[in-house]
Design a protein around this nucleic acid. Structure first.
Lengths: 167, 167
DNA sequence: CATGAAATTTAGTCAAT
DNA sequence: ATTGACTAAATTTCATG
C-alpha cells in the first residue's frame, strides 16, 4: 500500500491503451508511446506488481449469452451483526456481480445479472430468506447506455491539489 | 445478431479463462482445454467476431489512483423528451461509469467514480442543472466486497428450458 | 473443425548507459 | 530507467485429415 503512486505521462498512456485494449501487444504499445519493447514490458510489470493494474479480463455480451435481466437490488439488513454473513452469501452467488455497503436507504446494494424474470424472482426469494434481511427494493434495468470501468487517469503531478489538502 | 449462439463446453472453458485472465497466452489456453493452438485461435476469433467477446480490458485499482468515492445516483428525469439529452450528457462524463434507465423510483441510475467528496459535489450540481432533471438520490459506497463482470456461461445445450418457453 | 510443421511476429534476457 | 542485440517463445499461415 502506502507511498503515493508515481504515474507519469507515459504510464497514463499505457494505462489508457490497456484499459481499452487489454490484449494489445507490447510492440504496438511501444510504438504508440515511443519507447522500446523492454521499457514497456518493464513499466507494465511494475504497474501490475504495484497493484495499479489489478487484472485483465475479457468482457462478454450478456445479451448474446441470454442473461437478459440486469437489476440493482437495495437490501435492508437490520443489525450489523448480520452483515458479514450477508456479504459472504451475496458474494458467493455467480449472478451477483457487485456487492457494496452504502449510505442512504438500504444498507447494501447488489448489482445482479440473471437470465430472466423467473431466475430473478428465485434470486430475490433466496436473498429475502437470509438472516437479517428485512427488505429489498429492486430496480430492473430497462436499457444500458454506458457500462465501463475505465478510469480517467492523470499523471501524479496533475492531480487536483484539494486531494492533498484534506487530511 | 440473430441465430442462437452455439457455445460448446470448450468455448465455455475458453470464456471462463479469458474472463479471469484476459491476457492468457493461446498456448496456455490450448493445454488447459486440450486443443491445438490454431484451434484455440480460431475459436477465439469466432467468439470475438460473433460479438460474444466484446473486448478485453485492464482493470485498475481506483484506490491507488486516488478515485476514492464510488456512488450510485438515482436520477429523476421528468418527461421522456429529456431522456436522450440526459443520456448523452451522462455518458459523456468520464467519471460516470454506468448509465442505465430503470424501473422503480427514479428514471435512471448512474454509477460514478470520482476523486473525493468535493468532486462528487461538483458532479451532482452539474447533473442537477441539466434540463429535465428533477431530483437525485445519492448512495455513497462505503465498502465494495465484489465487483466483476464475470458471467457464469454454460453450454448452449444446458441453458434452463424455461428460457425458451417464455415467448 | 482440427492438426502439425513452417514462417513470421512478439516477448524475454542481459550487458551497457 | 532505457536501450539494442540476441535468444526464446508465441502466433499465424497453410496444407492435410
Amino acid at each position: 500500500m502506502s507511498a503515493v503512486e508515481r504515474i507519469d505521462e507515459i504510464d497514463v498512456r499505457i494505462l489508457e491503451l490497456l484499459q481499452e485494449h487489454g490484449r494489445m501487444k507490447r510492440n504496438r504499445i511501444a510504438e504508440e508511446v515511443g519507447l522500446s519493447v523492454p521499457s514497456v514490458s518493464e513499466r507494465m510489470r511494475k504497474l501490475e506488481e504495484r497493484g495499479v493494474i489489478t487484472g485483465y479480463h475479457a468482457v462478454l455480451d450478456h445479451k448474446r449469452l441470454h442473461f437478459d435481466i440486469t437489476a440493482f437490488i437495495r437490501v435492508i439488513v437490520d443489525g450489523s451483526e448480520y452483515y458479514p454473513e450477508f456479504i459472504r452469501r451475496a458474494c458467493a452467488l455467480d449472478e451477483v456481480l457487485e456487492v457494496h455497503s452504502i449510505t442512504g436507504e438500504g444498507s447494501h446494494i447488489l448489482k445482479v445479472r440473471t437470465r430472466n424474470t423467473t431466475t430473478l424472482e428465485r434470486l430475490l426469494s433466496r436473498i429475502q430468506s437470509w438472516p437479517g434481511v428485512h427488505g429489498t427494493v429492486t430496480s430492473i434495468v430497462l436499457s444500458t447506455f454506458k457500462e465501463t470501468r475505465r478510469l480517467p487517469v492523470v499523471p501524479t503531478e496533475l492531480v487536483p491539489v484539494e486531494e492533498f489538502e484534506t487530511s
